[in-house]
């Protein structure tokens, strides 16, 4: 199998690693870059646990060829925190609302929600449900995840208003 050096921009940093043609983005993130926060749960694009952002759009890293992610800005759960360690409002809201139980779907939920709030800063509950409908959670029953996303939207908007 042919191999070559691939360059990936992940969480604002470039990283070079050896890639093979069949490798998936989730494999590069987890196995080459040690970013294990992104989870592999179905490897078929059905459950959303592997969701990362590519140029701001949520994608399933388990069905994205690694080579197709080169040249795109990839963002994973590890990149959500500010440089000073401050939690992203979504992370804080997930903690405040107890929106994680086992935590396996959490990274995917956070990344999907981040993309939603960037595209739609004032979502309705129905908007949130629709946005998260590709992300499975087997523990929480979703209600607290939806609560957390609604709360985070408010926090982000309030912070923006203060800044403006």
């Amino acid at each position: 199998m042919s191999k070559r050096i691939g360059t990936f921009n992940v969480n604002g940093k470039n990283a070079d690693t050896i890639v093979e043609p069949q490798m998936l983005l989730v494999d590069v993130l987890r196995e080459k870059l040690d970013l294990t926060g992104t989870k592999r749960a179905c490897a078929a694009g059905n459950c959303g646990a592997c969701t990362v952002l590519a140029d701001g759009d949520p994608i399933c890293s388990c069905i994205t060829l690694a080579v197709a992610a080169e040249g795109r800005e990839i963002e994973t759960v590890e990149g959500l925190r500010a440089a000073d360690g401050t939690l992203h409002p979504l992370q804080q809201a997930f903690i405040d609302h107890c929106a994680a139980q086992c935590g396996y779907c959490t990274a995917g939920m956070l990344m999907t929600a981040k993309a939603l709030l960037e595209a739609n800063p004032r979502p309705t509950r129905e908007d949130v449900k629709r946005a998260l409908s590709g992300n499975s959670c087997r523990c929480t029953g979703y209600v607290k995840i939806i609560d957390a996303v609604m709360d985070a939207a408010q926090q982000i908007n309030a912070a923006k208003e203060v800044a403006a």
Partner: peptide, 29 residues
């Protein structure tokens, strides 16, 4: 919810900092 408290309080989970920041350590990790 409060970040720490006693029996009967609505305390947020100490587990969640690691789980919301991608630091959980599951089997495949």
């Amino acid at each position: 919810p409060i970040p720490e408290g006693g029996f009967g309080d609505a305390v947020t989970r100490r587990e969640d900092l690691r789980l919301t920041t991608g630091q959980g350590r599951f089997l495949d990790d």
